[in-house]
Design a protein around this nucleic acid. Structure first.
Lengths: 229, 229
DNA sequence: CATATGTTGATTGTTGACAAAATAAACCGG
DNA sequence: CCGGTTTATTTTGTCAACAATCAACATATG
């Protein structure tokens, strides 16, 4: 038998509404700090207010919007201090995940991991040579996801994904992506080596350092952008 | 089923409904895996189904209930593997927070912290001598909250609180609290010393170790309970 | 007897209407 | 013109009814 699965990912209207509002936010149609009007959104999307309301509540759970009782929902405004907090939290979780991945790899519970990591690194090396930013971006996410998956900690992954979403949201604010392919690639190699050596502590430290340096790169670019306008 | 009638407070009804359902879950009136019937709950609490629905969605955001589209909401069943995941995630966040607290203390941004920590430790020492479990429990939470607050990372604190809630939920399942006042107190002293010495790395390591040992204590008790009961 | 197919009651998803609160506008004395 | 008060209007919070979906049972079919 062969038939396409229907309605995948769109189980309920509220979920679709959530996805659509999230898109509007991440693509900048709804700017940071802007108020979300339930009625307007319901009309634009062609669903009832209750459905929109449910979607908004769901977004609030992921930290993308802030709710104030009796006053409404507002697109979350991410401050610089909060970006630092997010980086630090992300680093802590990613470091833990890399440590767990190293432990699991050493126990033989993550067979394909070594190949997957080295393949990713090879491809990123190619992207570095051609300076292919968009490919690098995708591979970078893949690298982190590989390790988060290898940690086998769904809860941590869920939190990590939320953080990623919120940080992505801040990028909209105008700052360019803090990327330095060569440096990042070197750090990835150190992490991958530690993990595939089964060295839990080294993996943790390398991962922590990677995120910390990512934040430094980000701050450097942020400072430069602010200066040049 | 029995639930307090709500609706006299000042917050929104949905918020009160959420608090009430959360209470029912944490106090075991609603058991793990049990289905939450919107209509029944709405009748028992004297509010409309929509309000109950909103409350349930909110609880899902905190991981206390699982939602399945078109089928309903179920009290989250925490498995042993998940408890391990939660402990590990909690450890990572708490370690990060202690590191941040050490850094902030060294920078003179957390003046009252040293006194607050030593006061807490003194009181816990007294609780140890009288073997006062409930006081110990409260002081233990206070100790962790002091450091989470000193980290000045609201996002991390929010995630931490959610984890705490979910772990507390699992305790309901029958296992006694994994507490060894003397050991825990020693570990607290190490953490406090590292933080007030401004040693970020030492604080991180001590905190991580503290949570890890907490998990070991938990596992020991869990194994014993499974054997005898 | 086992499996597939209809049928029914219960439960969730969605909607539009009403009530309460907050914001905007009109008013008014100085 | 201004600051404060009062009145409209808008917006959110809550509710009850309708539609879609599901779980369980009953029935048919080979």
């Amino acid at each position: 038998m062969k038939a396409r699965l229907i309605g995948v990912g769109r189980a309920t209207l509220a979920q679709e509404a959530r996805a659509e509002i999230e898109r509007m936010i991440t693509e900048g149609e709804l700017k940071a700090g802007e108020k979300l009007n339930e009625l307007d959104l319901s009309i634009v999307m062609g669903v009832s207010r209750g459905t929109v309301r449910e979607a908004i509540r769901s977004l609030a759970g992921s930290g993308l919007v802030d709710l104030i009782a009796n006053r409404g929902a507002f697109v979350h405004e991410t401050t610089l201090a909060e970006v630092q907090n997010l980086y630090e939290l992300r680093g802590a979780i990613f470091a833990m995940a890399c440590g767990a991945a190293a432990r699991r790899f050493a126990a033989g519970e993550e067979r394909g991991l070594a190949e997957a990591l080295s393949r990713n690194i090879e491809k990123m090396d190619a992207a570095r040579e051609t300076d292919d930013q968009s490919t690098y971006y995708a591979l970078n996410i893949e690298f982190h996801d590989l390790l988060m998956a290898a940690a086998d900690n769904p809860k941590a992954k869920a939190v990590y994904d939320n953080i990623k979403r919120e940080m992505h949201l801040f990028r909209r604010k105008g700052l360019s992506l803090a990327s330095n392919i060569a440096r990042s690639l070197d750090e990835h190699r150190v992490i991958a080596d530690a993990v595939t050596a089964g060295d839990e502590a080294a993996a943790r430290d390398a991962a922590n350092e990677h995120i910390r340096r990512g934040f430094d790169r980000y701050m450097t670019i942020a400072a430069r952008d602010r200066q040049t306008g």
